[in-house]
Amino acid sequence: MRRFPRYGTRFGNPADAAMAALTVFALCSGAWLLRDAAETHAPPQPSAAQARAGQDGQDGRAGERPAVPALPPSPPDRIRIPAIRVNAPLTGLGLTRTGSLDVPPAERKNLAGWYEAGTTPGERGTAIVAGHVDNADGPAVFYGLGALAKGATVEVDRRDGSVAVFTVDAVEAYAAKGFPDEKVYGAARRPELRVITCGGGYSRGSGYQGNVVVFAHLTGSR
């Protein structure tokens, strides 16, 4: 079943991208690792030092203030994360028949996707970008996401010709059980971005155990 891990069974308010939990599916099977029988090739996972400090409350949202003015809505076309050498086109993602978020084609390993019925990157709210960590042939677009550090830059090219520049606030890994949906997908008072892939450890029996999530907010544009 082609569901993106931990994406919601139903989207209530698309602008908020509020989602409930889903089980991990084939995207997180780690087919490449299974084929090569090489767990040493598992993707990097974020360290505790990259987690949110939590000084503003449980999920760090209480003290949020816009760093720069929000941008008008505009679909994104490309995402760049220089620190981990990501430079990838973006495709719009819709919902499956079950109400979960669809995923980019697995064979296009350098393609990421964004939830096109929700917030566009740069406008006020929480924008969602997702991509594969690997496929049967090897590492995919977000293989290195767990190695990203606080303060790193994420750039999104938008169709109106502007570039939304985000700064990473935290990088965290979550197990499939107990995934913090509201923390990851909930409404934001400033322009925020979540970049998500599989992670949270790997088991040859069941594949990846959860997800790696990057939290970032808009700090500039050009």
Results as ranks from 00 to 15, higher is better:
Pro191His: 09
Trp32Ser: 06
Gly207Phe: 05
Ala67Asn: 12
Val165Tyr: 04
Thr40His: 09
Ala88Trp: 06
Ala51Gln: 14
Ile84Trp: 04
Leu148Glu: 04
Ala188Glu: 13
Ala127Trp: 02
Gly201Arg: 10
Gly57Cys: 14
Gly60Ile: 13
Ala149Glu: 13
Glu107Lys: 06
Ala83Ser: 15
Arg52Phe: 05
Ala17Met: 01
Tyr185Ile: 01
Pro104Tyr: 01
Met1Val: 12
Ala173Ser: 15
Ser47Gln: 07
Thr119Gly: 09
Arg35Met: 00
Pro105Val: 11
Ala152His: 09
Met1Ser: 08
Asp56Gly: 10
Gly63Phe: 06
Gly201Phe: 05
Ser47Lys: 07
Leu71Lys: 11
Arg190Glu: 15
Arg52Met: 11
Val154Asn: 02
Arg35His: 08
Ala38Cys: 10
Lys150Glu: 05
Thr23Gly: 15
Gly63Glu: 08
Asp137Pro: 00
Ala15Gln: 14
Ile128Leu: 14
Asp56Ala: 15
Met1Arg: 05
Val129Glu: 07
Leu111Asp: 04
Thr91Gln: 14
Leu111Thr: 14
Thr126Val: 06
Pro73His: 13
Arg3His: 13
Gly118Thr: 09
Gly99His: 01
Ile79Cys: 05
Ser162Val: 01
Gly199Leu: 12
Pro89Ala: 15
Gly54Ser: 11
Ala51Glu: 14
Thr153Val: 15
Asn135Pro: 05
Lys177Thr: 15
Leu71Ala: 12
His41Ala: 15
Asn87Arg: 13
Thr98Tyr: 08
Gln45Leu: 08
Gly131Thr: 08
Ala31Met: 02
Ala127Tyr: 03
Asp77Trp: 07
Pro73Phe: 07
Ala112Ile: 03
Glu116His: 13
Pro191Leu: 11
Glu39Ser: 02
Gly122Asn: 01
Gly30Lys: 13
